[in-house]
Each structure stands twice: as C-alpha cells, then as structure tokens.
Amino acid sequence: MLEVEGLKKTYKTTKAVDGVQLYLNKGESVGLLGPNGAGKSTTISMMSTLITPTSGDVRYNKKSVLKHPDIIRPVLGVVPQEIALYEELTAYENMRFFGKIYGLSGRKLENKVDEVLELVGLSDRKKERIKRYSGGMKRRINIAVALMHEPEVLIMDEPTVGIDPQSRSYILDMVRKLNREKGMTVLYTSHYMEEVERLCDRVYIMDHGHIIASGTKDELKSILSGEETVFVEVQQMSLKLVEQLVAHEAIQKVTEVEKGYKVIATKGEDLLADIFKLASTIDVKITGIHVQTPTLEDVFLHLTGRKLRD
C-alpha cells in the first residue's frame, strides 16, 4: 500500500535520514521505534510530502507520491509531534476549521465533529479554548483533527510525548480501536518501546538515520533468544558488585536501575546461583531477583549499545 524506497535527507553535511526502506500493508499497525534524533520525524515529513527528500521515493499503491502529492494527501492523516492547533480557538472551532479544509461542510461536518470528539472523549469540553486544555487533552484534539476526513493511513509522530499515564492509555486504546475496528493503517512512531509493543504488529527500529532492524515483535525479540535479562535488587548499591558481575564470563552488560542492576547474560543454568554467590562474597544483600523475557528495549540496547531514551 505504502512503500518507502531508499529515502535520504541531507542537511548540508548532516545525514538526517540515510536510505530508509519500509512498507505498510493495508490495515497494518507498524511501529517506527528509535531514540530522539534517529530521523523518525524527518522520515514521516518526507512520507507526508511535507519536505522533499534528497533522494529515494515514496509510493502509494505503486505511484510516486513525491511526483504526485495529491494522490496521498486525501487519504493521509498526520498527527504531528507538536500540538499543531490554534490555541486561541476552541476544540470545536479547530475541528470545524480543519474539517472544512478537508472539504466537509454542513450536516456532514457537524456529524463528523461530534463523532470524532466522542472518539477522543472530549465532547463535553469542546467549547473550551485549546490553550486552557491539559497536555493530554491537547494531544487528543491533535489526533482528532487528523481523523476528520477518515484517512486510510494514519501517521502518528510521538503522539503521547509529555502526557499523563491516563491520557496515554486513552490514546493507545483509541489508536488500537482505529486500527482493529476501522481498519485504519497506522504508522506509529515513538521512543516508548512499551507503546510500540502494545500497538504494533511489525516494528522498524531506527537509529542515526538508518533502519537497523525490522520484523514482527517476536522476530525482533528472537535476536535476543540466547540471552536473558535479570533484575537484581540490592539493599545497597555497590560498585564492587558491578565489577564482579561484569567480570563474569556469561554476563554481557550490567546497567544501573532503580534499587539495583539490570544484567544481560547468556542463558545458562547457574547464573542466578553465581550472582548470589558473588554478592555474598562482598557482603551485599540481595533483596529481590527476577528474570525477564526480552523486550524491544533490550533489542535496541543490544543493537546500539544505548537505551532508547538516552
């Protein structure tokens, strides 16, 4: 349905996007995961015909949208990372304005405004100006505006940045509903791995302008099939314990987390026993320990050596 081929964008000497390849099938929910500055927003801007790529192409149903932007614009809904709304206008006025820009009018426009406001749960606050909204409410209207023309493809650029958990959960449920119940094709960009894990069928992992891995969630996690993640909770943090753990032949990486350490190690039978033994030799009391199945965050860490939010 939508294909991106060798997309590149260079600003003077900086390569913001370097040969990105990706595709979206109809009705799919695809995640584009990567840290800040990975090139996700630039990729989205090129896909939505907002900026011209240095090279490469974007095709919608086999036709180049770079040459013919008008073929994608009517079927594309874009939710920008920023709150792209008129703060002085009410939610209702913003939605009516963009609805009219999309060519809606009369009763159809009014019905659509009501329907979308219902969907984002803001019907009772529609007469308030956007500037008086909370961050979460602004995010929801930001999404609502992109849904006014019932797009086939919805591209969302970090739609939950800086909002409370309740609003985030509401938005994620809404996106899942749009994808599952309305068959909307979704490209969901985020640096929150748990969001992408929750929403998406397939995932592209992006870093420094490149796609560094792609596949279904299970395919990506299988990269880490030979490894396991162990969380070690300690009474008191100890640099010496870290040194001991890093020196262990099965342990690949030790990172500090709240109240303890996250240990990535090659799967082995005696690892937990070894960790307890190491701790007791230096008088560090372990208050808890659990083994976690790999996450996309772990995959990213494995591939780049960095956390997603670094």
């Binding site: 801007s45 939505s48 015909t49 907002l50 932007p69 008008d70 614009r73 009517p74 594309l76 874009v78 920008p80 920023e82 709150i83 792209a84 709304l85 008129y86 703060e87 963009f98 820009i101 999309y102 505006v145 023309h149």
Partner: peptide
C-alpha cells in the same frame, strides 16, 4: 512555528 502551516499543507491546501 507551531506546525499548523505544515498541517495545512498536508491537507492539500
């Protein structure tokens, strides 16, 4: 600055 212009351009305006 607030990306509303970009949003307008994406609509085909």
């Amino acid at each position: 600055e607030t990306h509303v212009f970009a949003r307008l351009m994406v609509t085909g305006e």
